[in-house]
Amino acid sequence: MIEIIKSAAAEINIDPKEVAVYLGYYSAETDKNTDKLIAECTEEFLACADFRACYAEIPVTDGEIDLGFRKIGCSSLKKNLSGCEKAYIFAATTGIEAHRLIERNAIISPLKGIVTDCVGSAAIEAFCDKINLSFENCEYLRPRFSPGYGDMPLECQKDIVEFLQTKKNIGMSLTESLMMVPVKSVTAIIGAGNEKNKCTGPGCMICSGINCPYR
């Protein structure tokens, strides 16, 4: 069964430092003007955002997941899911008004556009973390593993979106080129097992994109 969760904006804590990382500061200190702008865009974003997620639990067999109409299995996912008996198929979004806000702010100025975009990235990550924490009642979770990571094809987006009926359940859909709309959305497979190992660090670290600045 597909569970649907909504969160109020007040429950989402967007860390300005996280936004600064997306803006390219990494560990460097931000200046006062940038801090002000991040705060302003965060406030605007939270006023527009509509945090929704949906997920379903499914069994894992030999590192593979059976969606009924398709099996998902690839070497990096198998590695990620090793030792897991089940996994959560998961999708989350910050909503269509937040998408419009990013577009609107980008028209007002590229500066405001990029800062709002990075606020959105931090927001969806914070939202996913919050929901994933709620899964951790009786099991240990693997890092979120998304289509496009490692050798898991981006095409798996289609399967996840169809399986979770994301358009109906959380208002998220895919373009022909597999981009998610609204823009700040996430799909992932999250393994759950009884072993505590391999459970720390962001899921994207397994990605083969070694040039990625967010590693």
Binding site: L23, G24, Y25, A28, T30, D31, N33, T34, L37, S109, P110, L111, I114, V115
Partner: peptide, 11 residues
């Protein structure tokens, strides 16, 4: 100099 500052100067 970081991207936001670069863009502030650009503006």
């Amino acid at each position: 100099v970081y991207l936001p500052q670069l863009l502030m100067s650009a503006q």
